[in-house]
Amino acid sequence: MKKILLLCAAGMSTSMLVNKMKNVATAKNINVLIEAKSVEELQENLHIFDVFLLGPQVRFKKNQLSEIAAEAGKPLEVINTVDYGMMKGEKVLEYALSLIK
């Protein structure tokens, strides 16, 4: 099972996108765990998740958080602003899965 964590300021705004991604995963029979949390929770979730996606509103933290994720050998990227704004669950899910080695 692949594990994807979306990170934003409080873990709230990404929860709608998580639900859209879960719906796509279910429809396509993709075995995946997707959750949303605050960026402050990255460290304690490093060992659980395979990939980390930042909400566009916290993109300014990418360099700092990428270093932490890289030390654990995990990818961390920013969600495309348009895909995030339009809640394109399928595109974000595909992007997340493409980042997992």
Results as ranks from 00 to 15, higher is better:
T26H: 12
T26Y: 11
T26D: 13
A27W: 01
A27I: 02
K28Q: 15
K28I: 01
K28V: 01
N29P: 01
N29Y: 03
I30V: 15
I30F: 05
N31C: 01
N31V: 07
N31S: 10
L33T: 07
I34T: 00
E35Q: 01
E35R: 00
E35S: 03
A36G: 14
S38G: 15
V39D: 05
V39G: 05
V39Y: 15
E41S: 12
E41D: 14
L42N: 08
Q43W: 02
Q43M: 06
Q43N: 13
Q43C: 02
Q43P: 03
E44K: 13
E44Y: 07
N45Q: 09
L46S: 05
H47W: 03
H47C: 03
I48G: 01
D50I: 00
D50F: 09
V51Q: 11
V51K: 10
F52Y: 13
F52I: 04
F52C: 07
F52P: 02
L53G: 03
L54Y: 09
L54A: 08
L54S: 07
G55M: 06
G55I: 06
G55L: 06
G55N: 05
P56R: 13
Q57Y: 08
Q57G: 06
V58R: 08
V58P: 00
F60S: 06
F60G: 00
K61A: 13
K61S: 11
K61M: 15
K62A: 15
K62S: 09
N63K: 15
N63L: 14
N63G: 02
N63T: 03
Q64N: 14
Q64G: 04
Q64W: 12
Q64E: 15
L65V: 04
L65K: 08
L65Q: 00
S66C: 11
S66I: 01
S66L: 11
S66A: 15
E67T: 12
E67L: 14
I68E: 12
A69H: 07
A69R: 04
A70Q: 11
A70G: 02
E71T: 07
E71K: 15
A72K: 09
G73F: 10
G73W: 07
K74P: 03
K74N: 02
P75W: 08
P75N: 10
L76M: 12
L76K: 05
L76S: 06
L76R: 10
E77W: 01
E77P: 00
E77T: 04
